[in-house]
Design a protein around this nucleic acid. Structure first.
Length: 105
DNA sequence: ATCATGACCCCAA
DNA sequence: TTTGGGGCCATGA
């Protein structure tokens, strides 16, 4: 049989888990690093359904250009902003400077 | 099988 | 900068 879906999810978790503190990556970047080019959207789906207890740093994953993937001013938006600033990642107007914080393995 | 829905990406106006 | 449209993938009705 072929249930490789859980396998993809696992690889994505692994990649996100490797993003070091103070660094960030985009959904597309995570997808590529997980050897799943084109799965940016799926990465978002996976982040949304993370086990409640999971310690995976989902907040270090942003949209292309370093924009937070939540409606501006929403609760989730504020939460992610806070978590990032907590690691000294500057977030101005809901965006972080990828040039300075993007993770490069 | 088709249709709609997302924590997406990219490019042209 | 914002908006629209096309392309993406998996999931659920």
């Amino acid at each position: 049989m072929r249930q490789e879906e859980p396998e993809k999810k696992a690889r994505i978790w692994q990649v996100v888990n490797q993003i070091p503190e103070g660094k960030v990556a985009s959904y597309g970047q995570v997808a590529r690093l997980a050897d799943l080019p084109g799965y940016a959207r799926y990465v978002g789906h996976v982040m949304k359904n993370l086990p409640p207890k999971s310690r995976i740093p989902w907040f270090r994953v942003l949209r292309s250009g370093g924009r937070i993937a939540f409606p501006k001013q929403s609760e989730a938006w504020k939460r992610q902003k806070a978590l990032l600033e907590q690691e000294a990642v500057k977030v101005s107007d809901g965006r972080v400077s990828m040039g300075r914080h993007q993770w490069q393995p």
